[in-house]
Design a protein around this nucleic acid. Structure first.
Lengths: 138, 138
DNA sequence: GCATTCTTGACTAAAAATGTCAGGAATGTT
DNA sequence: AACATTCCTGACATTTTTAGTCAAGAATGC
């Protein structure tokens, strides 16, 4: 249970884009430099963020990436989920004890606890918006 | 960010031992069968739980493992920490931005958020005791 | 037409999780 | 004392995940 590089990177990228919200799109290359992320890796993360619908892209010269909503309407939860699997998607898949790919058959006796933990984590992540983070770190 | 097998296994083991609290020690072999954990793997997890001080072991015939405290005095947090690294021990090590092994130098701008998330997770895990779990799943 | 920039998917490398194994040390029983 | 039982330790192998790289292609603006 830890914060992976992808999560950290995604959060940094979103924060940078939040600062540029309303201005011109930012290129992947520029984001790579300003946020200290390998340039070939940054694209992959940006793709996930775009597919999650929280950023937009524009190709061609003077193209780049920008938020698709105001910073106040994007939560950390949305960012984390864009690049990471669900928190409560655990050893038993999605705790669907009946699922045929469940590695532990009927032994998932603890599911309710993990689901509740996932809820707690999610509630916190949803309570933090990019706008709030910006206020903290302008 | 997910619940690993070790965590799930550790929780199952502790719950089983909680049920046997006050009775004779339970052997690793027996635990392996009752909790559906590979027998060579179960020992490794038990070692970690013992080193964390939440279970005791006794060697020799009729030896085995038992809780070192009543179920009401053992929390899920103690169990999870015994087998897993700290939740807030993330990409930046322990978010000690000055540390020389920090992979991201001064860019750990988000640390406060992750630390707070770690706090939220920890608070929940500390609020759940083995006794409470037993009541839920006797 | 051309440089710029994103898009996609395949690929490699490193790290972590998961599981296996073997030899040794303590304990209780006979 | 001999023996079976059980834990202890550390090394090893396998699989999965994460992290990062690469290359060919497609859209865009000038």
């Amino acid at each position: 249970m830890r914060i992976t590089s992808s999560i950290e990177y995604a959060a940094r990228l979103m924060l940078t884009l939040a600062r540029e919200h309303g201005k011109a799109p930012v290129s992947a290359e520029s984001l790579s430099e300003s946020d200290g992320i390998p340039s070939d890796y940054v694209s992959q993360i940006l793709v996930k963020l775009r597919r999650a619908g929280i950023i937009q892209s524009r190709r061609g010269s003077s193209g780049g990436y920008s938020l698709s909503r105001p910073p106040a309407q994007i939560t950390l939860g949305q960012v984390v989920r864009a690049v990471d699997r669900d928190v409560f998607e655990d050893v038993c898949g999605k705790y669907d004890a009946g699922a045929k790919d469940c590695r532990h058959q009927e032994r998932c006796s603890l599911s309710p606890v993990w689901v509740r933990l996932g809820g707690v984590i999610n509630d916190y992540l949803e309570s933090v918006t990019l706008a709030a983070l910006l206020q903290e770190k302008p």
